[in-house]
Amino acid sequence: MTPAVAVTLLALALLDGALAGFRASLGRTGLINHRKSDYQAARRGTGLAGVLLTPVITAACIGLLAHPALLGQYARAGKAMLEVYGPYALLMLTALAFYTALNWRLKYLASALILGPFTLLRPVITILGGALGLAQANDPAVAVLAGLSVIAVLMVEPLAGRVWYARN
């Protein structure tokens, strides 16, 4: 895996973690002003994504040190994942930019047309990217790590909800 692909995938996973943490915190307290707790939730999500991905990253590093020949396998799997996650991330970031930039009467459009529906599709897209990565990897260890990274990313939101925001 080239460093650029690895760094981009990690950056996307951490960004996704921030948004997952943010979503996990929303609709919990009923307060009107929750900007501070929104930022805190995003930080928590980023940290949690980092923690959950650490074993995957560590295992990949150890695997590459032990078998440098696997670099090509990792690169193919990473690129395949990026081909799915890249456009999705671009779409979501563009919608977020519109949400921020539009006046209050119109900003819900970004939410109604893109952010809401594509949040619903996020698990499918995450699994699809992982499946493509898995299909590209001819090595079982690389395939397992691609699968684990998908599980780690999908666990951030429910785990953040359970750890920090559960309200009985």
């Binding site: 609709g27 009923g30 819900y108």
Partner: peptide
């Protein structure tokens, strides 16, 4: 009672996203 509060907090989230209070005020 706790369920009712959770459900209404979630509803509030949708209202915030829709900018609903601003629409009412307008």
């Amino acid at each position: 009672a706790a369920l009712g509060l959770r459900v209404h907090c979630e509803l509030q989230r949708l209202g915030e996203e829709l900018q609903f209070a601003r629409r009412v005020a307008a």
